[in-house]
Simulated assay, not measured.
Amino acid sequence: MRAVGNTGSPEPAALYLYRDWLPVSGEEARDLPINCQHVSFFPEIPKHEAVAELFCC
């Protein structure tokens, strides 16, 4: 999942994955953590353009 905006905390995106997307996806959560990779960072770009990608394993 790609999160755009203030990516200082990936918690809102992770909650969306677990609370909203996962139950309707037909997939099951595994016993692995979510990985977060920051693609672009503030202050190199404005906070509202920062990008992070979350990966569920």
Rank of each mutant, 00 (worst) to 15 (best):
R2C: 02
V4W: 00
G5W: 00
G5M: 01
G5A: 02
N6F: 05
T7A: 00
T7V: 02
G8E: 13
S9H: 07
P10F: 03
P10H: 05
P10T: 02
P10D: 01
E11A: 08
E11V: 06
P12H: 08
P12V: 05
A14E: 09
L15Y: 12
L15D: 12
Y16L: 05
L17V: 12
L17Y: 14
R19P: 04
R19C: 08
D20P: 07
L22V: 12
P23K: 12
V24L: 10
S25Y: 13
S25R: 13
S25A: 09
S25L: 09
G26L: 10
A29D: 15
A29N: 09
A29Y: 10
R30C: 04
P33Q: 11
I34V: 15
I34P: 11
N35Q: 12
N35L: 12
C36W: 10
H38K: 03
V39Q: 09
V39C: 06
S40K: 12
S40M: 09
S40I: 07
S40F: 02
S40P: 11
F42C: 08
P43E: 14
E44H: 10
E44P: 03
K47Y: 07
K47E: 07
E49Y: 01
A50L: 02
A50G: 04
V51M: 05
V51T: 07
A52F: 01
A52Y: 01
E53R: 00
L54I: 02
F55K: 09
C56Q: 03
C56E: 06
C57A: 10
